[in-house]
Design a protein around this nucleic acid. Structure first.
Lengths: 254, 254
DNA sequence: TAGTGGTCTAGACCACGTG
DNA sequence: ACGTGGTCTAGACCACTAC
């Protein structure tokens, strides 16, 4: 069963009941969910609340709705992970895979922001920033090089951490700093000589490059990063639904 | 101005008014949008309708809301593209870049589905499928190899097309077949000998591999594809918001 | 403390698809 | 023809933020 905190909104509770019923096989793939009016009756709620519940299932890709027909189950409910934090936190992701995450700090230093940094991180001129380079490992195997740049306010906190032991994401949370949004840009690049020696591959080997800008709930940039993954170790999955603007192909930069 | 069809829902109209005002500089980045009560007054609408309008801006990443405070502008409104169709249609994407799309058919053939196909495309055993391989070009430069597999029902339609001239996506639309959802899995692979000669690069060059499963609004698989892009010609961007489950890193398959 | 967004109710009319 | 989801109204109470 999907357990929920005591006083969740009614629409969240109802959505959870439906999810559980789907998992239990009560509504197989392709079958219809109860109509909004039926949900009103069954749970003693108003129609708006029933609609809200179903809309949660639609957002997460579990159900699809058509005008004039009841909602249809089109996929199994996803596990209740914190998807974004898994994407931003290597540690959280590794643990969800059942792997032991580890890391080695290659470099940590303070410097003056370049014009490039001030634009991307919305800084004033000449503000200091922090650079952090790490090699990240799954069960002892190096799979990724992570190069991050932090504004000084964040870098101060990061620099004080035991980076081999604690997760930056969760340490920032302790300081009430929430990474709430992120934009990732993904392409393929050949391994440089540096990359190659850090990851133990040949120079020129295909790496998946992920450039990242993570922001607070209000859009203030908190971290700028470039990760390079072993091309055959990691993949990114994206779900796209018509009418949602989340993923796009971008032009070449050559 | 963002023009809209005559009888759009009120909440869409109001959202459009807000978008236009943001673009016009009336609500700069970081400023507050009108409160829901103010929108009720200004547009003569109920609060639910005002909420709905703002929620559109939140979904598309233009605004952010916090309990107790008015919504805040956190980004410029995105262009009114059909993002998914741009992702699924090379032609539409190319035109949005101001490039001339073209393509060359390498192979088109019918064969019996493998167990792999029947699982991915939800087919019966031994159903026929169609394979299509194309090289795709932007302004005459080969940037991508596209390998698609279609169930027979779709393949029939595709095989009858002048593939050098018409877009498959729009041709399917004429047959009332809507590609409404897609899952993309992205990683980096070295160019095979075949890839290399088709794209005019060296064997082993880094390619961005995108595996795709496109489905109807109800989740019926319509196309399975594997695209290989020149690593330095194309990138994918993903926007992630906390609490939404759209993108994830997946484990290695080695 | 005043105003805000988050939740919820109880009605209503419409366009649409399914039976 | 009927039931469905899509839209919209007009209230209400609460928890939270800003001042």
């Amino acid at each position: 069963m999907h357990s929920r905190p005591p006083s969740a909104p009614r629409y969240v509770v109802v959505a959870g009941v439906l999810r559980d019923a789907i998992i239990a096989g009560r509504y197989p793939l392709g079958s219809s969910l109860p109509s909004e009016r039926q949900l009103m009756e069954a749970h003693g709620i108003a129609r708006g609340t029933a609609r809200h519940a179903i809309s949660l299932l639609v957002e997460e890709g579990t159900a699809a709705v058509r005008r004039g027909a009841q909602a249809v189950v089109i996929a199994a409910p996803p596990p209740p992970e914190q998807t974004l934090s898994e994407l931003l936190s290597f540690s959280a992701w590794a643990r969800s895979l059942g792997c032991e995450p580890s890391g080695r700090v290659i470099a940590l230093s303070r410097r003056t922001a370049t014009p490039d940094d001030t634009a991307a991180l919305a800084l004033g001129a000449d503000e200091p920033v922090w650079d952090l380079t790490r090699v990240r490992m799954l069960d002892g195997r190096a799979v990724m090089i992570e190069r991050s740049t932090y504004p000084h306010r964040i870098g101060q906190i990061v620099a004080a951490l035991d980076l081999e032991r604690v997760s930056i994401t969760s340490a920032l949370l302790d300081h009430d700093i929430h990474l709430a949004r992120a934009r990732h840009t993904i392409d393929a690049r050949p391994a440089s000589a540096d990359d190659a020696s850090l990851l133990g591959v040949d120079e020129g080997a295909p790496l998946l490059r992920v450039r990242r800008l993570a922001t607070s709930p209000l859009g203030e940039p908190l971290e700028r990063g470039e990760d390079r993954y072993l091309g055959d170790a990691v993949a990114f999955s994206v779900d796209n639904v018509a009418r949602q603007a989340s993923t796009r192909r971008t032009a070449d930069r050559s």
